[in-house]
Design a protein around this nucleic acid. Structure first.
Lengths: 246, 246
DNA sequence: TCGTGTGAATAGATTCACAGCG
DNA sequence: CGCTGTGAATCTATTCACACGA
């Protein structure tokens, strides 16, 4: 068999307004802002927001500067309005509909995950090949056969696909989703997906994550300390939980 | 804290460093090599291995150069020996034992995930707070109460912890794991963990992944084509193979 | 000759440090 | 004053292109 011919396309430049690394942190800031808002905070400084988000304040300010100037000098950021701006940038003003393919062990858990952190990403369509699953409703949503992706996905207005199938099936499912118009895919299968360049794939790869951790265990020559534990509720040892200097 | 830093000359760097970005790709190459080996391949070129792994060949060669010179000029890499070298570097020569905290919806799926991609990461200890779960065996492993982490984790020789609890519980569980000697943690809870710097945390954050995808959907102004799926944007390669779908 | 391995060039992300505004 | 926003410096990662070895 031949390899996917991917020599060297003439590198189409998209003028990326917001750096990729920044985008995923914006999502974290948004979550943290939600917690602060619940706690009654009206404003936050970059120092505070950064500390709770686990980044340093310069990075946070640079990240936020990419979406505009919503801070107040000498004060900080207004929690509510920053939340709103972040939601707008992340495209959360109108919710995305999600299709999940593969309702096995993992897929089942994903389907039941309740809006993924609270809100914004309703799973609207489910697919599998297993005859025992197809037709059965799961959390109020019927499981369709994978062969019906082309029909169901466009009708349901799905914009994001999640693949939680075994590795062998993942590429075929991915092709189906792409053919059905899906341009954003979250892949849980341990397989590298080949897609046209207009399709955005992100992967969640448990085996890779564990192997990276194993690498660090090995490198640190001895994962577990031999003497039994120290004190139990060891709070963080890093920069002070509130405001710390770098 | 790592090694005693050398005082005198400026900026003498450790020669052994493998870039972070490289490490996670090594895990992917290893998986792909496994597939190639099953397919009977003896050797691969960087071009081939890179294409299947979804990276370009220069990056792959640079990545592999960090672990040594195991290629044969004019030929490529010996599949079996490269596999072996990668396993060694990733610390997979002797398996890591994993503790999973939180045996709810997601945790249950993780526990049943069967060695995570096939091998090397046996889940050795399970924890939860739910009285209905504690004491019950799950896949042959008894679920302990979270309060017993300090006792069970060192005894079981756990080197990697996975947190699949609700967000509110995650930091406390993390502190327990760290106190029990765990230095590598995979966090599935939607929370930012504060840890001492000798602890390596990786996170799998579904909400963030989906929001990043939502960002790209929004930016591409119209994720799904509204016309019916007349288009099939010629997906590259890889069709005729045995596809488990019908 | 072919494909690895690698210096050099480029691109991207992070951190520093401070000007300037509220 | 205190804190944001940002140029400049630094560090990390990717890509190029070619010398060299099998």
């Amino acid at each position: 068999m031949t390899l996917p011919p991917q020599p060297g396309p003439p590198a189409e430049r998209s003028p990326r307004a917001i750096p990729e690394a920044t985008v995923s942190r914006l999502a974290i800031y948004l979550r943290v802002l939600g917690q602060l808002a619940e706690g009654g905070a009206e404003t936050v400084s970059s120092e505070e927001l950064a500390a709770v988000s686990g980044v340093n304040s310069a990075k946070l300010r640079k990240d936020l500067s990419h979406i505009g100037s919503y801070g107040i000098r000498g004060v900080g950021y207004d929690v509510a309005s920053l939340q709103h701006e972040l939601e707008k940038v992340l495209g959360l003003d109108h919710p995305q509909r999600v299709a999940l393919v593969g309702v096995g062990n993992l897929g089942h858990a994903l389907a039941g995950y309740g809006g993924f952190g609270g809100r914004g990403f309703p799973v609207t369509a489910l697919f599998d090949v297993d005859p025992d699953l197809v037709g059965v409703p799961l959390g109020g949503i019927e499981v369709h056969h994978v062969r019906d992706i082309a029909a169901v996905v466009p009708a349901a207005g799905v914009t994001i696909g999640m693949i939680a199938t075994p590795a062998q099936a993942a590429q075929a499912v991915c092709d189906e989703l792409v053919a059905a118009g899906v341009r954003s895919i979250l892949n849980f299968a341990p397989a590298v997906l080949q897609v046209p360049e207009e399709v955005e794939v992100r992967k969640v790869d448990l085996a890779v994550e564990l192997q990276v951790l194993a690498f660090h265990v090995a490198r640190r020559s001895g994962g577990i300390t031999e003497g039994v534990a120290t004190v139990s509720p060891v709070v963080n040892g890093r920069h002070g939980s509130a405001v710390g200097l770098s």
